[in-house]
């Protein structure tokens, strides 16, 4: 995974750096002191290298912790694994926010649309019932009118 590759690459870098800064080269640069104090030179060099390695490793660990890199590497590995059968290049931000936001908004619009369709249907059904009562009411009023007319004519 990425985490292992990251660690390996950094270790390789460190090894090569240390190799480049070999003791021979160190002693060669500090030849005058080396001639005077070879053992001290060696000890200074060893401490230098060890401290350098420690600092580099600590820094790398700090970067990993701060960026939560181990978790991110693992999750990216998983995502890449899931996409291994993908053929086409995947979507990428176009740089035009208005364009990119569209797809993110569409699910909510679709949800809103289906919600509106649902409540509209309910409202129409509700109105259907109300209309039926209204029509029944009109019929009843017409009947009452006829009854009144009939009673009136009977008296007439």
């Amino acid at each position: 995974g990425r985490a292992q590759v990251f660690a390996a690459v950094v270790d390789t870098f460190l090894e090569k750096l240390v190799a480049a800064g070999s003791y021979q080269r160190f002693a060669n640069c500090y030849r005058c002191f080396y001639k005077l104090q070879p053992e001290v030179t060696r000890s200074i060099y060893d401490q230098f290298i060890s401290q350098l390695q420690t600092s580099v490793k600590e820094e790398i660990q700090e970067v990993k912790d701060e960026g939560n890199l181990d978790m991110l590497f693992n999750s990216l590995d998983k995502i890449v694994e899931e996409a291994k059968n993908q053929e086409e290049p995947a979507w990428r931000p176009s740089g035009v926010p208005e364009e990119d936001v569209r797809s993110a908004v569409v699910p909510y619009l679709l949800k809103h649309r289906s919600y509106l369709q649902k409540v509209l249907k309910e409202k129409e059904e509700e109105n259907q019932k109300a209309a039926e009562s209204v029509l029944a009411g009109r019929k009843r009023i017409a009947e009452l009118q006829q009854l009144i007319q009939a009673r009136k004519q009977a008296w007439q």
Binding site: F6, V9, I79, A83, A90, W91, S103, P107
Partner: peptide, 25 residues
């Protein structure tokens, strides 16, 4: 590191961008 570790292959879509795949409006 930039090539192998810290990059996202072109054909990989991040989960939070699934909408762009599902709703290419």
């Amino acid at each position: 590191l930039l090539q192998l570790v810290l990059s996202i292959p072109p054909k990989v879509l991040l989960p939070e961008d699934k909408v762009h795949e599902q709703y290419p409006y």
